[in-house]
Amino acid sequence: MKRRSLLKAGALAGTLSNLPPAIRYSLADTPAQSVEQLPPLEGELTMYLGRGEGGLYESILDAIRKRNPGLELGIRRGETAALGNTIVAEGKAGIRRADLFWAVDSGAIGLVDDAGLARALPKDLIGQLNPEFRYPHWAPVSGRIRTVPYNTERLTAGDIPEQIMALADTDLKIGWAPAYGAFQSFVTAMRLLEGNDATIKWLHDMNSRATSYAGELGMVMAVERGEVDVGFANHYYTLRLKSGKPDARVDLAFTKNDAGCLVNASGIVALGDGDLPINFIRYLLTREVQSYLAREAYEIPLVSGVEPPQGLPSLNDISPPAVDLTRLADLRPTLDLMRDAGVL
């Protein structure tokens, strides 16, 4: 079996040719802005806000409100997918209630974008984002990377295969949370990258010996306890566990250029007219908000010049696969595959 060391020097080799399709949306780079450079927000805005991130998005919204007393911001909260469906349904009925949609995953963004409801964003705003996260109709706000958390008492990073598909051929004890949205996005990415046949075979092989958990933090904790050797999870669960338990017996490994190291993102769409929704998005891309998300939520900043969360390598040192994140909205075939494989 091909083994490797974690994040070897030179892992970046070839990265530029493997960046997601968004990079082809070529624009001049615009430096990340400070909130001090932005115009005040005045007027009424209604935001549909996907539930998640433990309320930290709410702290950001409160801070924006406090800084902009002339802004009347109404918020409708709900599950991200449900809100995305609501926006599409409202659009079909010729109604628009939301001026902005901040979703915790890009799949729901794709749903709204595909329905033709998302406004085009100005080039200077898109140019603030790192090249691989530039999309014409939505702005990724913060990222999270799929990882392979492993038990450090049993394994080293070199014991983890470079390719996610190869994990099915190991004798490692594996944990997963197949009902979890982030896991299903990961399988969707695998389906897009490897094809249906390879994906269902992988699911089938893994299903015969993987232990299922309800959520990914619970699964990471199981890795730490040694209940399983490795798992599949977004990076921040491990970082947070290690923050609360510094001697936790778990660390992160990254596969290479496949769904196992997919970088997904939360994102925001402007639906309403005028400058106000667009300017609101600018606040989310400021150095201050991006730093806050990295510091408090362990999310990956997506503008230049902001440090990633402590304990996570720079995106430049990881080789994520080329996947148009909005295509992750196409969940139905993924769920069909997972059911066919007996995973769900």
Binding site: G215, L217, M221, R240, G244
Partner: peptide, 19 residues
Amino acid sequence: LTRFEGVEGMLIEQDAALV
């Protein structure tokens, strides 16, 4: 899945055993 999972990440930084 829809409530506890969203806050346990913050909580685990405070008290991993409680989580």
